[in-house]
Nucleic acid binder design. Sequence first.
DNA 1: CATGAATGAGCATTCATTCAT
DNA 2: GATGAATGAATGCTCATTCAT
Lengths: 205, 205, 205, 205
Amino acid sequence: MNQPSPTHQRLIDQGIINAPDSAKGRLLQAAATLFKEKGYERTTVRDLGKAVGIQSGSLFHHYPNKEAILRAVMEETILLNTELMKAALAESQQPKDKVLALIQCELQSVLGETGAAMTVLVYEWRSLKEENQQHILKLRGIYEDLWINALTEAKASGSVVIDPFVLRRLLTGALSWTVNWYRQEGDLTIDQLAQMALSLAIKPS
Amino acid sequence: MNQPSPTHQRLIDQGIINAPDSAKGRLLQAAATLFKEKGYERTTVRDLGKAVGIQSGSLFHHYPNKEAILRAVMEETILLNTELMKAALAESQQPKDKVLALIQCELQSVLGETGAAMTVLVYEWRSLKEENQQHILKLRGIYEDLWINALTEAKASGSVVIDPFVLRRLLTGALSWTVNWYRQEGDLTIDQLAQMALSLAIKPS
Amino acid sequence: MNQPSPTHQRLIDQGIINAPDSAKGRLLQAAATLFKEKGYERTTVRDLGKAVGIQSGSLFHHYPNKEAILRAVMEETILLNTELMKAALAESQQPKDKVLALIQCELQSVLGETGAAMTVLVYEWRSLKEENQQHILKLRGIYEDLWINALTEAKASGSVVIDPFVLRRLLTGALSWTVNWYRQEGDLTIDQLAQMALSLAIKPS
Amino acid sequence: MNQPSPTHQRLIDQGIINAPDSAKGRLLQAAATLFKEKGYERTTVRDLGKAVGIQSGSLFHHYPNKEAILRAVMEETILLNTELMKAALAESQQPKDKVLALIQCELQSVLGETGAAMTVLVYEWRSLKEENQQHILKLRGIYEDLWINALTEAKASGSVVIDPFVLRRLLTGALSWTVNWYRQEGDLTIDQLAQMALSLAIKPS
DNA sequence: CATGAATGAGCATTCATTCAT
DNA sequence: GATGAATGAATGCTCATTCAT
């Protein structure tokens, strides 16, 4: 595994997310992978235990129940990716550049190391009970605001023609779906794919 | 419930899909709704039985097991929507019109009466075992070919700039995701949404 | 299938057992075969229905429940074989000849056409409820009395040395077990086998 | 319960069979008893659980499925009784004594403490699937070889007149059937019964 | 912290039996 | 008599969770 990015390291140091080499961190990583591959329901606590080398009963020393593990996977990934997006935005000036930065960021999240967790965030929503859905929804709101702001700016500047809310939602679907077909090993790089996605969202100028 | 479309009626008459008011048809409709709302795993056969007013054991008079119900939901919806798309294409001439027809058709499928089944088709894939996945995949291939052909034509005519395969996949995500946010009751009509989606795919000319 | 023996035919004419080509007769024959092969519990009424070419529900026009079918299989075979033994005894004079006749008769029952039913009689005892067990037990008593009488005579004549009751029970086991190993197609004929069994029971004189 | 015999204790110490006072050992003992009394099919996992004082679900902590319990019952009893027979043979010199030792051993197995398990071994054969039948068959082959060798020797010495294979099969039936009629409380001791069985097999000399 | 045996509610599925047609 | 859809109780098995050690 690569070194965590500075942003990632900062969140670890602040105690906001678990270090990937800690017991909890490894559990969450394994959980994300299994939840993505088999689905939350079909992943048993025994599967989780085996993946990190402990008995299933011991998981409950770390998290009070299985759903808390799912919630933690979602929470950490949304927090991390929000910060990564903020950092990327900070380096972009033009509205169009900001949109590209967001697209690149989201594709990296979905197709890179946090991909499993991002997929879980998108597809295992129904497995949380109401109360936990609300919690994640709030965090997700912050993330989405970054998008809406950037797209609204782009619309104001004339690069975007359709309603930013609708556009964001169409992009959400298009980008998150890539996990189902994009293969790292193929000819298409993530950056090329980002450019193609950008070309849909933005009028050629 | 509305009258089935002529295409729908034809498939019923041919014995390819079950009439919506038959025992099996009502079961499949209920199953699609429950599978969409709660997910396949979390939907019990008791839930299914209750939804159609029979005992859970009686389900097995119609289908040999729970997975066969999921498969039938997927199979019928893909067959129906393939035929609906063929019918819509037959009425369009220009490449651009064909793409619009496909977008409208897919949005109708996802957001209209077959929406639950379409959502299940997209999101419950993993719940089928290999063998049944293959079966559905084959049917899905026919459906996807209609898209690829239309987009390839549109590219040849200059309306589309990016690779048809990549474009189709971005559109698949964008359109299927609408089920998670589009509300019939709102201001945005499905046709308006289709136009907006078209504007992403097609260069203004 | 061969012609029924005169004794068999008489019992059919007297309405004591069902003709093998009647609906009930064919059902009992199929039931005996299936009960022997798969066991009573593992044989479903659907299996029985399929074997005679009707729906499982229709069986209940002939017999009030599954157990009644088992009981009828047992009842008919014990009645028939009791009569067959009586007929064979009537043709034997010497005590030793009578014992041989009984052994031949029982081996024919177990290894011949009624073999399936006889095996069911021996091995599916526990599947009857108390009340039906009593009924069969009474019929079986008549059959066993024929044996005990013959063996007691043979003991009186000096051909048998051990207690007739113990001997009968050892023979019951030895002869009924043949169903598990004897093969009609092999070198050993049923008559040779009967002679060998006789040589165990009877002192050479 | 009596002390286990030295042979029994040795097999426990070698980890080949479970101690009768261990959790698994008590389960197997209870299973043998229930399988004998009610048959394997009619014995539910809830019955098994109740018999050892645990919930039915907890059984699957010890054995992966119900059939594995049946298999273990059969496996342990055949292994134990094979060793007991070897030990008994080791103390006999004359062919006739060896045959008596085997008869005594088998009657002890069938009528004594392992009686339930031995009965299950004989009568619940069909409840195993092919693969497990093969496994038990192999173990059973070793046991049967001891018999065939002893009877072949006895034939060579003139004490036995009929074919050893046929004789063994007749004895198998006669001896295993005793479970259906022999009562410990009656006048007949197991040793007397063994002598009577021997008198069938062996010519008086 | 970790283990692993146990819980107990829940699951998909089976099947003898019923009954309107 | 026969059909076949429906019943409803029972079955083997799963699995998140608990807890004494």
